[in-house]
C-alpha cells in the first residue's frame, strides 16, 4: 500500500486490551489482516516506500498507542515491567530504569533522534522482528520475557524463543505483545551498549551490542548479550555466552572470544555496510565488552 492509499484504511481505537484481543480474534478467524499501530515510526515509513496496489480493501488499523494496559514502567522487587507501548523517551526519563538498567536509556538515546524516541515503542520494535532493532538487542541482553495476550489467554516466552526467522516470530495473528519483564541486574552489575551506526544520530545499526554481566569472585555469574544487524534475527551469541558464563574472567582469551563470536554471527552485505566489516566489528565489540568488564 502506498502513501495515497492511507486514506483507505479504517482505524479503531479500542478502549481496552480485552477489546483489542476480541477484534483481533474475530478478524483472524475470518483471515483478515489487522495492524496494531503504536508509534507508527515503522508502519508509516513502509507505506511511504511501498508501491500502489489496486486493492480497495485496506488493513484495519487498531490504535493501541494509548491503551493504559500497554503503558507504563513499574518495578516489583527485582522485576521490572515495561509495557509494550512504552516509548524510548519514557525509558530515557524513568528514574528506576536509569538507576537499575542504564542499558535501556543508553540504547534509547541511540534510536533515531528525539522525534523517533518520542513515538517509537519497545513493543513495536519487537513486533517488526527486524534484526536491526536496537531495542530488541537490549531486551536480548537482559534475557527479557515477552508477554503475549489473546482471547485464548496470556502466555509468556523467553525472548530467545520469540523469533522463528527473518522478520518472523511465534506471535500468532490474534496475539498482542503486552509488555516485557526483566530481572534487573544487581548492584554493581556491568551493562554495556554500543551502537556502530551509519552516523551518530538518525542511524540504523550496522552492528550494535548490548551486554549485561555480573561478576562474583572473578567468575561471570550472569551474562546476557544481544547483537543487532549481524544475523537474520537479533543475535543472542550463544557460543560466546557458553564460553564465558561461570568462567573466571581472566581466563577468557580474546582469541577464544573471537572464534565464538564468529560462530554466532552471519552478517550480510547490504546498502549500509558489508558482511566483512560487520564480522570484524562484531568481534571488536565483544572484545571491548570483556575488556571493559575485566578492567572494572
Amino acid at each position: 500500500m502506498s502513501l495515497p492509499e492511507l486514506s483507505l484504511h479504517g482505524l479503531e481505537r479500542p478502549d481496552s486490551l480485552g477489546s483489542v484481543c476480541e477484534r483481533l480474534a474475530e478478524r483472524a478467524a475470518r483471515g483478515e489482516k489487522t495492524v496494531l499501530l503504536a508509534g507508527g515510526t515503522d508502519w508509516f515509513v513502509e507505506r511511504h516506500v511501498a508501491p500502489a496496489t489496486d486493492g480497495s480493501e485496506a488493513e484495519l488499523v487498531l490504535d493501541v498507542s494509548r491503551l493504559p494496559e500497554l503503558r507504563g514502567i513499574s518495578a516489583s522487587g527485582d522485576t521490572l515491567w515495561i509495557g509494550a507501548a512504552t516509548t524510548y523517551l519514557e525509558l530515557r526519563r524513568h528514574p528506576v530504569v536509569a538507576a537499575r538498567v542504564p542499558l535501556l536509556p543508553a540504547m534509547s538515546k541511540d534510536v533515531g533522534a528525539v522525534q523517533i524516541q518520542a513515538r517509537g515503542t519497545l513493543g513495536g520494535n519487537l513486533a517488526t522482528a527486524s534484526p536491526a532493532a536496537d531495542g530488541v538487542g537490549a531486551l536480548a541482553a537482559l534475557d527479557a520475557t515477552v508477554h503475549l495476550l489473546s482471547v485464548r489467554g496470556p502466555r509468556s516466552i523467553a525472548i530467545s524463543d520469540y523469533f522463528t526467522g527473518y522478520k518472523r516470530s511465534v506471535r500468532a495473528a490474534d496475539e498482542v505483545i503486552t509488555g516485557f519483564t526483566v530481572q534487573m541486574p544487581g548492584e554493581g552489575s556491568f551493562q554495556y551498549w554500543r551502537k556502530v551506526g551509519t552516523r551518530l544520530a538518525q542511524a540504523i545499526s550496522k552492528v550494535a551490542l548490548a551486554g549485561v554481566a555480573e561478576v562474583s569472585d572473578g567468575q561471570v555469574t550472569r551474562l546476557g548479550l544481544g547483537m543487532v544487524s549481524v544475523a537474520p534475527t537479533t543475535a543472542f551469541l550463544p557460543t560466546v555466552r557458553a564460553l564465558a558464563l561461570r568462567r573466571p574472567l581472566d581466563r577468557i582469551a580474546d582469541s577464544a572470544l573471537d572464534a565464538a563470536t564468529q560462530a554466532d554471527v552471519s552478517p550480510i552485505d547490504d546498502v549500509r555496510s558489508t558482511g566483512d566489516y560487520r564480522r570484524h566489528v562484531s568481534g571488536a565489540l565483544v572484545r571491548e565488552f570483556f575488556r571493559t568488564l575485566r578492567s572494572r
Partner: peptide, 16 residues
C-alpha cells in the same frame, strides 16, 4: 540506485 532514501543516503547530523 539502491539507497535513494534519506535513511540510507547518509548526510551528517548536528552530532556528526
Amino acid at each position: 540506485i539502491l539507497n535513494g532514501r534519506m535513511t540510507n543516503y547518509i548526510v551528517p547530523t548536528s552530532l556528526d
